[in-house]
Computed example of a mutant assay.
Amino acid sequence: MQSLLLLLPDFSLILLGALLRRHLLAAENLWAGIEKLVYFVLFPALLFNALASVPIDFATTLPLFLCALAVLFGGFVLGWAGQPLMGLAPIAFASRLQCAYRFNTYIGIAIAGKLHGALGVATMGAMSGAMVPFANILAVSMLARHGQGSLARELLRNPLVLATLAGLGWNLAGFELVEPAQAFLKRLGDAAVTLGLLAVGAALRWGQVGGRLGGSLWLLAVKLMMMPALAWWLGRALGIEGLAFELLVLFAALPSASSAYILAMRMGGDGPGVAWLISASTLAAVATLSFWLYLLGVAG
């Protein structure tokens, strides 16, 4: 119960976003503008400020990153193994495969900050930001084989990648942010979490699942149950403990990201099928994240 109560405020914002889009703020261009604001301005500011301002133990962070990368590739392989269950054309399967390993950074940052404050935000931000290029490489390379698009262009214009690299570079160089700049970035970051979660809710889409339901359920099981189980096993095997272990499992258990839908549409893929999977994983994550937080003992 405590785990569910911990998640309630964040998932309430997601529900509010869905209700606002349906009943009060239905204009598509409004939510498209909010998503761009969060993606290109607010969330990069949050990542840069967290990574530039909080001391990071890189001796502990490197094993965490390597473990997260292994879990990401594990999700890709497990998702790929479900192809015979899908009954889809190659481009449609490549579109949906993203939902087996891509992760919703907004939800991760919100929960990490609630659990561990600024250090949790910095650690989750660094881990998520470091995994974004690899998730994009997997997704874009698969889609580019069957559709259209450029891997290099997708990576070079990704603001989360740029903000992560800039924040880590600032930290490694030993620079300090002056107080006005830090306060400015903090206020942008505070807005990022709230507006980001509202945008997640507004982006929820339901329609025909397409293909075979068993294949879609397999991808959901990979993302919400198999990946965090793999993270748990790898983390213990590599001796990762404390905050790092908790956030590793949380990272692996996050629902699929709305960016999977955007990429699928941009590269000529199966947008509606991806949208269904994102929506289903987001709603199911209320239960599955509660389960993993309970096992971790961080909310009870």
Rank of each mutant, 00 (worst) to 15 (best):
M1N: 09
M1G: 12
Q2P: 12
Q2K: 11
L5E: 11
L5W: 12
L8G: 00
I14D: 00
L15H: 01
L16M: 12
G17F: 04
L20C: 10
R22M: 03
H23V: 07
L24V: 14
N29Y: 09
G33E: 13
I34W: 11
K36M: 10
L37F: 11
Y39D: 02
V41Y: 13
L42T: 03
L42M: 12
F43Y: 14
P44M: 06
L47A: 05
V54L: 03
P55V: 07
A59Q: 12
A59Y: 06
P63H: 10
P63V: 07
F65Y: 14
C67V: 13
A68K: 01
A68M: 05
L69K: 01
F76H: 06
V77S: 07
W80Q: 11
L85Y: 06
M86N: 10
L88D: 09
A92T: 06
A92W: 01
F93Q: 06
F103W: 15
N104D: 05
I109K: 00
A112G: 03
H116A: 15
G117P: 08
L119S: 15
G120E: 02
V121D: 00
M124T: 04
G125M: 08
M127T: 15
M127Y: 02
V132C: 02
P133A: 05
A135G: 15
M142W: 14
M142N: 13
R145W: 12
R145D: 02
G147F: 07
L155P: 02
R157F: 13
N158D: 13
N158Y: 08
A163Q: 05
A166N: 05
G169F: 13
L172N: 04
F175H: 14
L177W: 13
L177S: 08
V178Q: 14
E179Y: 06
E179C: 00
A183V: 12
A183C: 03
F184H: 08
V193R: 00
G196E: 06
L198S: 05
L198Q: 03
L198T: 07
A203Y: 01
A203D: 11
W206R: 12
V209D: 03
G211L: 10
G211K: 08
L213R: 13
G214D: 04
G215Y: 07
G215H: 09
W218M: 06
W218A: 04
L220R: 01
L220C: 13
L224H: 01
L224G: 01
M225L: 15
M225Y: 08
M225D: 00
M227S: 11
W233T: 12
G235T: 04
R236F: 05
A237M: 12
A237S: 15
A237N: 02
F245R: 09
E246G: 13
E246R: 09
L248K: 03
V249G: 00
L250W: 00
A253L: 04
A257W: 02
S259F: 15
A260F: 05
R266H: 09
G268L: 10
G273D: 08
A275R: 03
W276D: 03
W276Q: 14
T282S: 15
A285F: 06
A287Q: 00
A287C: 10
S290R: 00
F291G: 01
F291V: 04
G297E: 05
